[in-house]
């Protein structure tokens, strides 16, 4: 006791600060440093990434300006116009079939894209995950490489394939399967194929990530307990990689539903999707409030998808942890 007292009060003044205080001070310093380090990223994204969303949220409740932009008359008209339209003569409200069909088309195309990507991506990811280690990374690299290349370049390549005198049609005519070219380009089919082509790697990557962790002893156990290939796949593999499946579906669905380039180039102006509708409001149609309202509506759909993702995948991860 005596020793403790002398040393604490006398010889070394720097230790006057108690352990708790010193720990707290160190903690405060590291917290300050941390926020200093993240601040540039937060500032840039906050200002130029998040602020604009607030602005279009405001715009969606204003009226369109005479030429473009907005005028400061608060109204719900833009939100109403997302799905409704006023009759030109008697001003009664009716459903805006053009908008409704674009939204429906976007939803259906994004969903079909997701399913197609899953059908192709699942076996591919499984195949990659069952390769020897060295081949795996090569496969993963090769499958993901197109994703990083320019979307425009990929869509352009698809145009060359699907055109009336493109490679598919000329091959089929050459082989005498058909006489005149199939109309593929500028149809919903073309947009669906284009979207699947564009976002397929986004399905394979998360699927692979969860399959890589798959414990193949569990599959051995499945076969040992009289499961055939199909039952093992259905009862063991798929439930185990479910988080990967959901992640892949969401990753494909989100960019697909907001697609702009693919429907523009492969849909040929008549098969618009929400993305094109939004762009038109800020372009030729000059209805910024409506464009803003549709943007927010699109974001809402994406948020719903994300919430499904979070609830399924994250909560599952928590359960396992």
């Amino acid at each position: 006791m005596a020793i403790g007292e002398t040393t604490a009060t006398g010889s070394v003044p720097t230790t006057q600060m108690s352990g708790r205080e010193a720990t707290a001070a160190a903690e405060r310093r590291s917290v300050r440093k941390r926020w200093l380090l993240v601040s540039p990223a937060l500032a840039i994204i906050g200002l130029v990434g998040i602020m604009p969303l607030a602005i279009i949220a405001v715009y969606s409740f204003l009226s369109p300006g005479p030429y473009a932009g907005i005028s400061w008359d608060p109204t719900l008209e833009a939100w109403l116009n997302v799905f409704m339209e006023r009759d030109i003569f008697d001003e009664t409200l009716g459903i805006n079939y053009a908008h409704a069909s674009i939204v429906t088309r976007s939803f259906v195309l994004a969903f079909v894209t997701m399913i197609l990507a899953l059908i192709v991506g699942f076996p591919t990811a499984y195949f990659i995950a069952t390769r020897p280690d060295k081949q795996r990374y090569l496969w993963l690299f090769i499958i993901s490489l197109p994703f990083w290349s320019n979307l425009l370049v990929r869509t352009f390549a698809m145009m060359l394939v699907l055109r009336d005198n493109g490679y598919i049609n000329s091959s089929l005519i050459y082989l005498n399967v058909i006489e005149k070219p199939l109309e593929i380009i500028f149809t919903n089919t073309a947009v669906g194929i284009g979207l699947t082509y564009a976002y397929l790697p986004l399905m394979v990557m998360p699927l692979y990530a969860s399959m890589e962790k798959l414990d193949f002893r569990l599959i051995e156990a499945g076969y040992d307990l009289y499961g055939n290939r199909w039952k093992v796949l259905w009862r063991i593999v798929i439930p185990l990689v479910r988080p990967g499946i959901i992640a892949g579906c969401i990753l494909v669905f989100i960019p697909a539903i907001g697609a702009y380039v693919t429907p523009k180039l492969l849909g040929g102006g008549k098969n618009l999707m929400v993305g094109n509708l939004i762009a038109n409001q800020f372009g030729t149609s000059r209805d910024w409030p409506l464009g803003s309202a549709i943007s927010l509506f699109l974001m809402l759909m994406v948020m719903v998808a994300l919430i499904i993702y979070v609830r399924n995948v994250i909560s599952e991860a928590d359960k396992n942890a």
Binding site: V48, G49, M51, P52, L53, I55, I56, Y59, I254, P255, I257, G258, Y260, V274, G275, I278, A279, F282, W288, G291, S292, S295, L296, L298, M299, V302
Partner: peptide, 13 residues
């Protein structure tokens, strides 16, 4: 956020 939404938001901002 869908790229198109970011794009129109940034445009207005």
């Amino acid at each position: 956020i869908p790229e198109i939404v970011t794009a129109v938001g940034t445009l207005t901002f």
